[in-house]
Amino acid sequence: MPILNDIKEILTGLSITFRHIFRKPVTVQFPEERRVMPERFRGSIVLTRDPDGAERCVACYLCSGACPVDCISMAAAEGENGRRYAAWFRINFSRCILCGMCAEACPTLAIQMSPEMFHCKRQVMDMIYEKEDLLIDGTGKDPNYNFYRHAGTGVVQPRGSSPGEQAPADPRSLLP
């Protein structure tokens, strides 16, 4: 009899839903409880420092160019030691889509995505983060990387003295 089969299936469904009443809810009560996001989660954007504590950003504008929604703006300046840095650096988080392209584009690993979730603001102007808001004290994802030990040579150290770098060849020694 198909009707008995139908009744059995309805009762099976009812028993399954009844058992779920006693199961622990999966809900995260957001403002009080917060999920710890995975390390590679694309949350809010930060500017990191190198292991020596100096700013990593060299104001190359690559992040600004990579940004599909044009939310990053900055102005470059040059310090007394010849290093470039950002005079001001601004991210408009009300436009940011958290795509992570800026972090991919960055040659010095300065701009990084952090697993920190966004905080909502009541005023849209509060969503615009300046350099002071973005800069963190730590090194972020690659703690030992220092751009100036691999590149930018000549500015701070003689050529060939970086760890992964060979001494420049002297072309005269190759002459016949």
Partner: peptide
């Protein structure tokens, strides 16, 4: 509330 519990919600 009960529908929530049935669906593992609060």
């Amino acid at each position: 509330r009960i529908l929530g519990f049935l669906q593992d919600r609060i």
